[in-house]
């Protein structure tokens, strides 16, 4: 694991990890319809060769799918319905607000590598991979309502790996951003449904609720990977001592503290309450909440944590 931000694609994902990821595939807890007939069996009946069911003809149905044999026997029009095989859409949303550029190891560097690994899994399995970021700076940034959304859409196949890596390298965390507005933009722009993986610390002053509601409301199978640094999980052991004036990197807000045991204990209980509140929120909306620490190795996160949680197999 490297604590520093990657400067090249090779640093984002090395060949050893790639070879281990080649055996994985992204799975969804739902089966979604895609634009292309893919490798997956969809619940959607349609134009595959595998018969699924009949249904009565209604006006406007394609007459090509009428089962004329039944019409001959019963004198009623029925449509033949087939299981359609569809591709999987993987949407990786990375938080590029300035708060992600903090921590040791840095939260953004960790999220960058994790996004690269997940995207690579999607590409090698010929899933439709889309990357999006909000709050950061970089080429192709859409500024809408202050959300700063960037997007790299519809990649498929291993050969797009370099393009995806470069996009991630070009993304720089900066500024603040309205999480709810950004998620609204990303969710509405996405055609079709799929798996959405959100990489963020989710420490938004305005709250995470509206943003996650937008993501879950559009039918995505949402995985919220909450990335926190050791400075946030155990501040006393990582330099938060004495009389301090804490400055928020995003909005510049200041809070004066004296890091007494009572204050640190209060912070820990506040953090636990925040995380448990987030988990409960996610459970209610069928969102998979996965708390991650930047000290964890990316391959371990993919091969163990996310496999256990059902994002990859």
């Amino acid at each position: 694991m490297s604590a520093a931000r990657a400067r090249s694609i090779d640093e984002l994902i090395d060949s050893a990890l790639m070879s281990r990821l080649d055996r994985l595939d992204v799975v969804s807890r739902k089966i979604f319809a895609g634009k292309l007939q893919g490798e997956r069996r969809s619940k959607r009946r349609g134009r595959s060769v595998e018969f699924a069911d009949f249904r009565p003809y209604v006006h406007g149905d394609d007459l090509r799918f009428v089962d004329w044999n039944i019409y001959g026997r019963l004198d009623r029009l029925f449509l033949k319905m087939f299981l359609e095989e569809e591709d999987l859409s993987l949407l990786v949303v990375i938080d590029a607000t300035a708060s992600m550029a903090s921590g040791e190891p840095e939260k953004f560097a960790f999220a960058q590598r994790l996004a690269m690994a997940l995207g690579y899994v999607g590409l090698v399995n010929r899933n439709r991979v889309t990357l999006a970021s909000f709050g950061g700076a970089g080429e192709g940034t859409q500024v809408r309502g202050g959300s700063g959304v960037r997007r790299l859409a519809n990649l498929r196949g291993r050969r797009r790996t370099r393009e995806m890596g470069q996009w991630l390298l070009d993304t720089e965390p900066a500024g603040g951003g309205d999480f709810a507005e950004a998620m609204k933009t990303i969710a509405l722009a996405r055609q079709g449904r799929g798996v959405m993986v959100l990489l963020s610390d989710l420490l938004f002053r305005e709250g995470y609720e509206r943003g996650l509601n937008y993501a879950a409301g559009r039918g995505f199978d949402v995985f919220a990977l909450q990335v926190l640094s050791p400075q946030e999980t155990d501040p006393a052991a990582h330099g938060i001592v004495g009389d301090l004036r804490l400055v928020d990197v995003e909005d510049g807000g200041e809070t004066e503290i004296t890091a007494t045991p009572a204050v640190l204990e209060r912070y820990r209980s506040r953090l636990e309450a925040f995380v448990s509140g987030l988990r409960e929120f996610c459970v209610r909306r069928n969102i998979m909440h996965v708390p991650l620490d930047t000290t964890q190795a990316v391959d371990a996160v993919i091969l163990e944590t996310l496999r256990r949680r059902g994002l990859v197999r």
Partner: peptide
């Protein structure tokens, strides 16, 4: 002075 990712939880604690 110390710049951190968010003062959200600190301000509530204090």
């Amino acid at each position: 002075r110390r710049t951190i990712s968010s003062t959200l939880l600190w301000s509530r604690s204090v």
